[in-house]
């Protein structure tokens, strides 16, 4: 609903009250300090990535470098199949986002706007799915994927499908819970009006409901993307022998050596791995806050 999308902005633009100047300056200073504290580790990561080898491991680390170098990045790109790893990560995260978008929307619609027996039980079951300690269940999942592989090779071990399936399952519960608020916020009168105008349930869902729920879908897709992109454990467990199907975090592992870790390259790889998330994030940042506002409001 437009209320959902506009509510937050209204609250913000009307914030400045007369006679509140000192408090505002204080808040500005506090904000800058908070932002700086939060940003420092990130700065350190990027800085290390650009430092020449001699300056990285030093007893007196300096918060700047006078001789920035791209050597560490070059190191990362020379890892065999680096481009392939990157592409694999993008494919897994992208497919997870698309499928979870559709599935969680359908489920949220059914669980919010339809009244049927067992609805509450379903909702609780979905919440409980969020509580399952997946990392602790890596091994049962490993065996599961091995048997799945003999039936449907695409979803078996060593295939990206196994990662997609797993991350889909982990992002769906929270996505559904979040979207429920948005779907519920669309007034039922709209549906009645649409029905009077001759629109069926499907037309209403796709042409009216879907666009109105869009901010929630954006917020949800960010969460799913980050979740799938973050993964390290499952990529490490499921993709055992097919190196061409490994994902990005495993490319960084190459720089951990018994003889001493190559922190310059590790930080360069980490920087590269962070960039796509940030780009995605910057694009949807505005919608994200109002999106989550909608879910919380509900």
């Amino acid at each position: 609903m437009t209320i959902t999308a506009r509510g937050p902005k209204r609250g913000v633009t009307g914030r400045v009250l007369p006679g509140k100047r000192p408090g505002r300056t204080l808040a500005e200073i506090a904000t800058v300090l908070v932002a700086a504290t939060i940003a420092f580790p990130l700065y350190w990561m990027v800085l290390t990535a650009f430092k020449p080898a001699g300056q990285i491991q030093s007893t007196d680390p300096r918060p700047w470098t006078l001789s920035p170098t791209l050597e560490n990045f070059r190191q990362v790109f020379t890892v065999d199949n680096f481009g392939r790893y990157f592409l694999n990560s993008v494919v897994v995260a992208g497919v997870v986002v698309l499928i979870s978008l559709v599935l969680s929307f359908l489920a949220a619609v059914a669980l919010t706007r339809f009244r049927f027996r067992g609805r509450t039980v379903l909702l609780v079951m979905i919440l409980v799915a969020q509580m399952v300690p997946v990392e602790a269940l890596t091994i049962p999942l490993f065996f599961l994927m091995r048997s799945v592989g003999s039936v449907a090779p695409w979803f078996g071990l060593n295939h990206l499908g196994s990662l997609i399936l797993v991350h889909l399952a982990f992002s769906l519960p929270f996505a559904i819970w979040m979207l429920r608020g948005f779907v519920a916020a669309v007034p039922t009168e709209l549906e009645e009006a649409a029905t009077l105008d001759g629109a069926g349930r499907f037309r209403f869902t796709w042409q009216v409901l879907f666009p109105l729920v869009a901010p929630g879908l954006v917020a949800m897709s960010v969460l799913s993307f980050i979740h799938a992109w973050n993964d390290f454990l499952f990529a490490k467990t499921f993709i055992i022998s097919a190196t061409e199907n490994q994902t990005l975090p495993l490319a960084i592992l190459v720089f951990f050596k018994p003889t001493g870790n190559d922190w310059g390259a590790i930080m360069a790889g980490s920087t590269l791995m962070t960039i796509p998330v940030l780009v995605f994030f910057v694009f949807v940042q505005r919608h994200l806050v109002s999106g989550i506002a909608g879910a919380v409001k509900a």
Partner: peptide
């Protein structure tokens, strides 16, 4: 402020 949250846990 939200960037740390967007960064992969492994990273």
């Amino acid at each position: 402020v939200l960037v740390p949250w967007a960064i992969p846990t492994a990273v």
